[in-house]
């Protein structure tokens, strides 16, 4: 099981849950299950989300494997210069 922390803007879309526990082995599985559980997250996950795994930002690598004790954050997809 992986514990996911949502950034503040996502919390209202996930029934006001700040942290959610999900059974997932990859980022893809994690995001799919989050959408299934909280349909309101769908648009944000498709367009705005970057996933931070153990402190490293993953914007697009949905195949990133998640260890059971991984620290996972959903963060806004960042802009850069």
């Amino acid at each position: 099981m992986v514990e996911v922390t949502l950034w503040g803007g996502l919390v209202p879309l996930a029934e006001n849950q700040k942290t959610i526990t999900v059974e997932a082995g990859t980022v893809r599985e994690l995001l799919r299950k989050l959408q299934e559980r909280y349909p309101g997250l769908k648009s944000a996950i498709e367009n705005d989300v970057a996933v931070v795994v153990d402190g490293v930002v993953y914007r697009d690598d949905r195949s990133k494997e998640l260890a059971a004790d991984a620290e996972v954050f959903l963060m806004r997809r960042l802009a850069g210069g």
């Binding site: 402190g55 490293v56 620290e71 963060m75």
Partner: peptide, 9 residues
């Protein structure tokens, strides 16, 4: 634990 949330490697 960073000020923006995640824990640093």
């Amino acid at each position: 634990k960073s000020s923006y949330g995640p824990v640093y490697g």
